[in-house]
């Protein structure tokens, strides 16, 4: 690797455009959003203006965002995401495990089958779920055939959690697969030889050794769940509002951009907190990472 000082012109040519794009079209907009979160709508002649703002007036928007009404929604977003993440982990672990122990002929195909839905448009997958769950959907049709239902499966927390699990499952499978694949299988043999049961081996050997993958998967699923907008919007409707929907409403229907900006930053801080938690756990389990 060269020192950047050895060839400054090449360094700047390569670094320039990308860095410029990031600064102008990513960091600067976030800066605008940051300023907006500390601003208020301007009051002109006693009327609240729709388009004009008084900039940097204070933290009133943040104070409002911890109002019980919004705090409940933030809290709900966290537990819905957490539950979806746990369900993802519970279903994805056996899948990743199974793929690692599948025959070489099947492995690439199984991996492709897991990853492929991830590449299909999020909106289309969510729409597909609506067709399955709506009151005249296939699930209710099948239940009706055996004399049950129809049940309202859409527009509630169940639909949102199921949708999130459905949509973000590949994010969990891939890191789990990567760590289980690297796991030295002789550890498992040793544990079984020394008399531990399959269950004990799994709990005391496999899980601790694949912890880095578990942590990565949990974070990779939790973060997009927390910030999700489309899934709760289409599957949850008015009954299962998450923080993303509140932000969207402030920027569209409610037209309260300063408050929406403050909520966006709350969401970003929560995201960074999750990332820092990951870094912390990754450091702690670094000794285990073989």
């Amino acid at each position: 690797m060269d020192n950047w000082k050895d060839n400054k012109s090449v360094f700047w040519t390569l670094a320039g455009p990308g860095t410029f794009w990031m600064l102008v079209f990513f960091i600067l907009p976030l800066g605008f959003l940051f300023v907006m979160s500390f601003s208020d709508k301007a009051v002109i002649n006693g009327e609240i203006s729709i388009t004009e703002y008084d900039y940097l007036t204070g933290i009133s928007n943040y104070v409002r965002s911890v109002d019980p009404l919004y705090l409940t929604i933030i809290w709900k977003s966290i537990w819905v995401s957490a539950l979806a993440t746990i369900l993802c982990l519970v279903t994805a672990y056996p899948i990743a495990f199974g793929i690692c122990f599948a025959s070489e002929r099947w492995k690439p195909l199984l991996l492709l089958l897991v990853v492929l839905p991830f590449w299909i448009n999020l909106l289309i997958r969510t729409y597909a779920l609506i067709a399955v769950f709506r009151s005249q959907g296939y699930v209710n049709l099948a239940l009706g055939a055996v004399g049950l239902g129809p049940y309202d499966m859409l527009y509630n927390n169940f639909a949102v959690i199921f949708g999130l699990v459905y949509v973000y499952m590949p994010f969990m499978v891939l890191p789990l697969y990567a760590t289980i694949e690297r796991l030295d299988k002789s550890f498992l043999e040793a544990s079984l030889d020394l008399g531990a049961s399959q269950f004990t081996t799994f709990l005391k050997v496999t899980v601790p050794l694949t912890m880095p993958g578990i942590i990565t998967g949990v974070i990779l699923v939790f973060i997009p769940c927390l910030g999700s907008f489309l899934t709760p919007d289409l599957l949850g409707g008015a009954n299962a509002v998450m923080i993303g929907n509140v932000i969207e409403r402030q920027f569209k229907a409610a037209n309260d951009w300063p408050f929406g900006a403050a909520l966006s930053f709350m969401l970003m801080y929560a995201t960074f907190a999750a990332l820092m938690l990951r870094a912390f756990f990754a450091k702690r389990s670094a000794g285990v990472d073989v």
């Binding site: 690797m1 020192n3 360094f11 079209f25 990513f26 927390l226 907008f229 970003m268």
Partner: peptide
């Protein structure tokens, strides 16, 4: 190249990947 604060630069480049989409969307709208 190696250059000072390379780790920080890489994290900076990864920001659009980790930040919630909706935050990036509203920031750009603004």
């Amino acid at each position: 190249f190696r250059f000072p604060f390379k780790g920080a630069y890489e994290a900076f480049m990864g920001l659009p990947i980790v930040i919630p989409e909706i935050c990036m969307g509203v920031a750009l709208l603004l």
